[in-house]
Design a protein around this nucleic acid. Structure first.
Lengths: 202, 202
DNA sequence: CTTAATGTTTAGTGAACACTAAACAAATGG
DNA sequence: CCATTTGTTTAGTGTTCACTAAACATTAAG
């Protein structure tokens, strides 16, 4: 496999994606302009379009890169138990929304929640990602119910939705300045609602 | 008190605020343009500026109107118990984010979470509202601890933050299409984490 | 009726928006 | 060297952005 034929790019595509990730993560899709991106990356607008297609396509690629580093449907399905899946999801979620040197919050949990109709397609893609995670958790919980690990009276859909609710709320809390330690206490509270979790009083 | 001196407005100011509320609620601050507002209200841009000052000022007034109809720091402080405050907060929150005929989600919980730096001041005002609610709940819980209603080992700050986290997550879930009934099950799960709540297994 | 006050409209401001045509630059293959 | 391929730049496109100056319209006070 020889080198590509034409002129070589003057910028590192992965570095540019990281730069775009930082901007989109920090300011959201609407809050970042093409001018912001080209200035931060250090290229002309035409180069950015040549490399990434459009602003929406760049956002999609940034989002794919962002998601590849964190826990998703696959990790949930592969967890040793649904309780462990939830614990891991919350732990990793907290780490993700409070990473030092990175923007606060989560691009998926807090991204494009309210946006114009012209960006409705991108918002729908984010919503689909959130829904897929919830469904994966629901399936993992249902499996534990079928295997008798969780009581038969457990409502898998409701329990999965509850922990997704907490996860999404954690992103808002991080954006409002909560530390990882404070969020771990929140996660601990949430885990007290797990079916069969010990009550500390009475 | 006689009538005002000059020409009478041709539009109802409260109706205009309601229209602006619907737009901002549905599409967020960035997702609504002055052109959107003037078209929906049915007035020229100059009239809107004459009546409301600026887009940011209009948003502030819309937000004040929006908040006046829902539970805030005062209702939390006046609740008969911190548990009741939390239960009411979740119940009313669910009703607010799933009101038929109204936009989904909550302007405060899901508003301006990621925005450009030029709107950082508005985002900070929303953050301040969220923080004030959390602090009010924390004080209400601390009072119940001091009065012996809650165990002395209870962490008021952590518990308040947990239920604010759930409340903010509920808004995302509503935006993603969850029904009020589904969200009530989420709230029920969350209340199982209350100190001394009965565990349904062992 | 005149004056003052207030709200309206038309018609615009300059700036920023996402995006692109066209020419130039640098690389490989023959 | 020449052709081809690819990425670059400059210099724009038309549109939309939030916002406003100035003239006109309607009201009450004097």
């Amino acid at each position: 496999m020889a080198r590509a034929r034409g002129r070589q790019p003057t910028f590192d595509r992965d570095e540019a994606l990281e730069t775009a990730l930082d901007l989109f993560w920090r300011h959201g899709y609407d809050g970042v302009s093409i001018a912001d991106l080209t200035k931060a990356i250090g290229i002309a607008a035409a180069s950015l379009y040549h490399a990434f297609g459009s602003k929406a396509d760049l956002y999609r690629e940034v989002l794919r890169h962002y998601r590849s580093v964190r826990i998703g449907a696959k990790e949930i399905a592969d967890a040793t138990s649904s309780y462990d899946a939830v614990r891991q999801m919350l732990d990793r979620g907290i780490a993700a929304v409070t990473m030092p040197g990175k923007p606060l919050g989560c691009m998926v949990s807090s991204g494009m929640l309210m946006t114009s109709e012209e960006n409705a397609d991108l918002a729908a893609e984010l919503k689909a990602i959130r829904t897929a995670s919830r469904k994966a958790l629901e399936r993992r919980i249902a499996r534990d119910i079928k295997e008798g690990i969780l009581p038969a009276t457990t409502n898998a859909a409701a329990l999965a939705r509850f922990y997704m609710t907490v996860l999404q709320g954690l992103s808002v809390q991080a954006l409002d300045g909560a530390s990882a330690a404070e969020l771990r206490l929140v996660a601990a509270s949430a885990l007290r609602a797990w079916p069969g979790a010990p009550s500390d009083l009475l």
